[in-house]
Amino acid sequence: MTRGDGSPGDASFGDASLNGASPGDGDGSPRGGGGSPAGGNGDRDLAELLAFLRRRVTGEYDVDEFGFDPEFTDRVLLELIRPLYRRWFRVETVGMRNVPGDSGALVVANHSGTIPLDALMLQVALHDEHPRRRAIRLLGADLVYQLPLLGHLSRKTGHTLACREDADRLLRKGELVGVFPEGFKGVGKPFSERYRLQRFGRGGFVASAIRAGVPIVPCSIVGAEEIYPKIGDLRLMARALGLPYLPVTPFFPWLGPLGLVPLPSKWIIGFGEPVRTDELDPADADDPMVVFNLTDQVREMIQQQLNELRLQRGHAFPPFF
């Protein structure tokens, strides 16, 4: 569905960008090029849209060596997610200045929500609200890359497999890399354990940051825990389908596809004070004690920030309760 000219996938290019480019959409459309005089705007938008369509149809766009297609990501995929980001979850960001503007950094975030929508929201946040419109390059589980469609959408949106080689390569290139060290333990934890950070893998991400000498930015995402409250797990079914878990929520699977609609919780994404690693020797990446200590420090910072932001947010579902 992602390729083939004239397939439904291509039709969505047109729809999505038409929505974004229509003059009525005054809601700070992120790439509107604000400040231009209103006259002739429509014509220019139309010409731009046609040029965009032409690039897509003739393949005249670039992808990087990881398969990242910035234009497709910004104008199609993120455009589809933006309504969810703005209106449904009403995401607020805090501490965006802690994310460096043009150098490499490692964003380490908590993972929650049963379905990893937090990764998508983090991507929109950094792209639309960071002054340098940074593209985050997330490191994903290998399960993602085995699946048809998902694996390649993930590469097109700039993400790659969580492995040492890819992390090092991206950080060396000065990219903003994001990891969720809790992995499936975090995203699939029961609702009763919400906002409690799980174990942080083996600290491979910290070693990569030390090797590259880039800062680690602790990131706390509040709100994702409530979108699909997981109150049960269909273990046998999950194993049969090869999934890490199959959640039971108050609405799923009872309401069928309707149960897949995420609850409209209020979100805050906070970026904490960066932890510097350039004062360490790159050889320290091979010292397990240094790596474990730094991992613990980052984990503590995320947990603390998580608690503060949760207090600041108050109720999960304003204005209802």
């Binding site: 992602t2 390729r3 083939g4 149809v57 393949g59 670039d62 060596e65 297609d69």
Partner: peptide, 11 residues
Amino acid sequence: GVLLLSQCARR
């Protein structure tokens, strides 16, 4: 550089 298969077909 890199080309995706879909890009090859489109080009």
